[in-house]
Amino acid sequence: MENRLRHLNEIHLIKLAKEKDGYKAIIGDAEYKVSDLFVKENLICFRIDGELRVIYHAQDSGTRYMALAGEHYVVETVKARESGAKSTVPQEENSVTSQMPGLLVKLPVAVGDKVKAGETLAIVEAMKMQNELRAPRDGTVEKINFQEGEQVDALQAIVELADLHEKQ
């Protein structure tokens, strides 16, 4: 069984193989022996190379929130398609998105505007903090999906730039 999981922008491949008294897990060159597995609700416990570990977890679709020994981790399932680096221009190069949900307080650009890399395209406010979203590259504003005063979710495209390739 193979899993591709993303943690802090790094994608890891985890292989699990059933063994007679547990599991063998392989990540890159590292190999681990898993035994004494116990899973119940938000708790998963097991021994890994003999050491007992207690982990709390909760899942929100493809995102798993986990806590172990005082550290909190966010691990995302990576779909097979995503993990192959094929697309030439990554999605985020063509749009600006907010890392956090919040209120769209300013939208200083209009469709058709020519913008320079680093120019502010939108300002999103959440929890008393304003976050300026800047153009990832030079380009032309092709589409604006929200209006000032609207609530935006995390990772929703707010301003989209015209595709680089169409222009050429």
């Binding site: 899993n3 999981l5 599991y23 998963i44 890994i48 977890h57 986990m66």
Partner: peptide, 13 residues
């Protein structure tokens, strides 16, 4: 502990 967490996520899946 990142590997331990990844193994746990794989086991849960």
């Amino acid at each position: 502990n990142i590997h331990v967490v990844l193994v746990a996520a794989a086991l849960l899946a």
